[in-house]
């Protein structure tokens, strides 16, 4: 009963129209391969954290595990670190797209130019080694449609 009333007088932060509280966006970061280089992903995760994101890191994970985390953690964006063969990543992407169509995906890691083109064609943005953190954070803002503070 008072729920409606609160909404009516604009007191409810969840009523986004009337609210100025920022919804916290959540990003899942996973590695598709069994290759444990953590330099790159850690730097990116820290940058996203410092940009105000909650970054859920699950390390090396299979497509199934990534999907499970994507659903249970209700994330707004998935970041994949691709360390090996593109097909392994494609399987994970396919699994996410099948069940969570609306969740955008971006990728980084040692990705050959040919594989990068393949990923782009699927709507997955690719940030190869040497990409700037500013660009990556901007991409996250854009993909999660986060309002700039």
């Amino acid at each position: 009963m008072f729920l409606e009333k609160l909404l009516a007088i604009g007191m409810f932060p969840y009523n986004s129209e009337a609210s100025n509280t920022m919804e916290q966006k959540r990003i899942l970061m996973a590695k598709t391969g069994l290759d444990g280089h953590w330099r790159g992903p850690t730097i990116v995760a820290r940058a996203l954290r410092d940009a105000g994101y909650e970054v859920i890191m699950i390390g090396m994970a299979t497509g199934e595990e990534i999907l499970r985390a994507c659903v249970d953690e209700d994330v707004d964006l998935v970041g994949l670190n691709i360390g090996g063969h593109i097909n392994v990543a494609l399987r994970a992407i396919e699994a996410i797209k099948k069940e969570r169509q609306s969740v955008p995906i971006f990728a980084g890691g040692t990705i050959t130019p040919a594989s990068a083109r393949e990923l782009n064609a699927l709507g997955v943005e690719v940030y190869p080694p040497g990409s700037s953190l500013t660009d990556i954070v901007e991409a996250a803002d854009r993909l999660t449609q986060r309002k700039q503070a």
């Binding site: 598709t32 391969g33 069994l34 290759d35 299979t62 497509g63 199934e64 360390g83 090996g84 063969h85 593109i86 097909n87 392994v88």
Partner: peptide, 13 residues
Amino acid sequence: PEVLARREDVGLT
């Protein structure tokens, strides 16, 4: 199982 899930990665390195 961890390897089966990534069979294409096998032999890459």
